[in-house]
């Protein structure tokens, strides 16, 4: 095989003769060209991929941003609902609908069974009309549980102001009868303070003690 210059004539041949025409360089050229082509092509493709992934990322970004906005909107809407339900006015209204009335002067049931303060029957009148208490009279102790999910913990002091009023069987906590009641775990009595409808588990369900007592 002769050099390629040999097949050219005239000016081209003269130019070709200026180029080095060793066999070794001919052999090394092909891989070099391949390498350059590969590098260029690879770079181009990488750039393309990079660009498209960046663009895909940008689309994803705006999509996620929209999702964030939607979720924020939803969170704010739900928070608004929670706020509406846990506002003191709304709580009072619902408590009154359950038949609760504002309690009188504070009285405290101490762990040793003594009562400080002067307990009295709540004298405020319940709302007229069918009350929730009438709808479910026997499950009074479970009332706090059924209310708990809808009442925020911070709102509990509001409920301390209401005490039970039921048409029958409700007696005020009388110091002389208190010791005969079973020992009250302080946790229970403080939750009873939070929603003071919860009658203590007494010997008979008809005589719940404790309107506005707390575990002090």
């Amino acid at each position: 095989m002769r050099g390629p210059a040999g097949q050219l004539r005239g000016r081209a041949a003269r130019l070709a003769r200026l180029m080095p025409t060793t066999g070794a360089s001919t052999a090394a050229r092909t891989p070099f060209v391949l390498l350059v082509v590969l590098l260029l092509g690879g770079g181009l493709i990488t750039l393309l991929l990079l660009n498209s992934s960046l663009n895909a990322g940008s689309f994803k970004l705006s999509e996620l941003k929209k999702q964030t906005t939607d979720l924020t909107d939803e969170q704010q809407a739900l928070q608004r609902d929670v706020d509406n339900l846990s506002a003191p006015d709304a709580l009072q209204h619902r408590a009154r609908q359950l038949g609760m009335v504002p309690g009188g002067s504070p009285a405290f049931l101490n762990p040793d069974g003594k009562v400080s303060g002067v307990p009295s029957e709540a004298d405020a009148l319940p709302y007229a009309g069918p009350s929730a208490l009438e709808a479910f009279p026997p499950v009074a102790p479970s009332l706090p549980a059924s209310l708990a999910p809808s009442v925020s913990p911070s709102a509990s002091p509001t409920d301390a102001a209401v005490s039970p009023s039921s048409s029958e069987g409700l007696t005020s906590a009388d110091p002389s009868t208190t010791p005969s009641a079973p020992p009250v775990p302080s946790a229970l009595s403080s939750s009873a303070d939070a929603l003071s409808t919860a009658p203590l588990p007494g010997p008979t369900s008809g005589t719940p003690t404790t309107p506005t007592t707390s575990g002090r």
Partner: peptide, 14 residues
């Protein structure tokens, strides 16, 4: 005052 005493759980001194 009654409400505040109840809210802050202030018992009477006795």
């Amino acid at each position: 005052m009654e409400f505040a005493l109840k809210s802050l759980q202030v018992p009477p001194t006795g």
